[in-house]
């Protein structure tokens, strides 16, 4: 059984006159352990789709199944990581990480324990009592990552997590993300990454789904057979980036 399955998912937003269809008839499934990238031009609804998988945005029609069961409301086995980091500026690093746990009703002792485990995993030891304002973008996103990981989700949903960062910071965090996901003791087995950066998708994902716009629909669904660790200079890497690029170009 697939871990996650989307069946004919559509989304429309109501406008003063009529409605806007942003996603139409999206169907795909995600296997256990898969790193999936959703790519497409801006406005193709990929971020909306990610939020519907999490459950914070309701579907207009269709179904999202998790382990064969329909998800109503928020899927507590998933956690989101945002482009904007979405940190509370008045809370310390540690308190920001614990906040996600508190919201899920986890007691203070367990919160402490988990916060310290994931602070360690993302390299934030030493920053526990810093405030977001004191941190660089890269450190802020490490907090966002630790906050998501601390709830020990099966699926981590990442919405353009590296797009607000400069190139050197993004290189570092992509490598760190792969290390976290590939660690034998990782609790996160699945990642769904929304990105408009094609090289990022090809570097990280096992599988890439290309969405077209107006309304968003699945244009292509491809498994990337490039061995890891991936070499950005390799021919296979270039072939795949060119292929994904041409698919996006054609449809937008």
């Amino acid at each position: 059984m697939a871990l996650l399955e989307l069946r004919n998912v559509s989304k429309s937003f109501a406008l003063p006159r009529g409605s806007l269809r942003v996603l139409e008839d999206i169907s795909f499934s995600v296997e256990e352990g898969e790193f999936l990238a959703l790519v497409g031009p801006s406005g193709c609804g990929k971020s909306t789709l990610l939020r519907m998988i999490n459950g914070i945005i309701p579907l207009t029609s269709g179904q999202v199944l998790y382990r064969g069961k329909q998800v109503d409301g928020i899927n507590l086995e998933s956690a989101l990581v945002f482009q904007s980091f979405a940190l509370m500026p008045w809370l310390t690093v540690k308190a920001n990480i614990e906040m996600g746990l508190e919201a899920r009703g986890i007691g203070s002792e367990e919160r402490e324990k988990r916060a310290s485990i994931y602070i360690d995993k993302v390299g934030l030891d030493g920053f526990e009592e810093a405030y977001p304002r004191e941190l660089s973008g890269g450190m802020k996103q490490r907090v966002g990552l630790a906050r998501a990981l601390a709830v020990e989700p099966r699926v981590m949903l990442m919405d353009e997590p590296f797009s607000a960062l400069d190139a050197l910071t993004a290189i570092t965090l992509r490598e760190e993300l792969l290390d976290i996901w590939q660690a034998p003791d990782a609790s996160v087995k699945n990642i769904i990454l929304v990105t408009h950066i094609i090289e990022e998708a090809v570097e990280l994902a096992d599988r890439v789904i290309v969405l077209g716009s107006g309304p968003g629909r699945v244009v292509a669904d491809m498994k990337l057979d490039i061995p890891r660790p991936r070499d950005r200079r390799s021919e296979a890497f270039n072939t795949w980036t060119d292929k994904v690029f041409s698919l996006i170009e054609e449809r937008s």
Binding site: S136, D166, L168, T169, T172, E175
Partner: peptide
């Protein structure tokens, strides 16, 4: 983080 990115690159 920039230094680490440079090393990766």
């Amino acid at each position: 983080t920039w230094v680490f990115g440079l090393l990766e690159l």
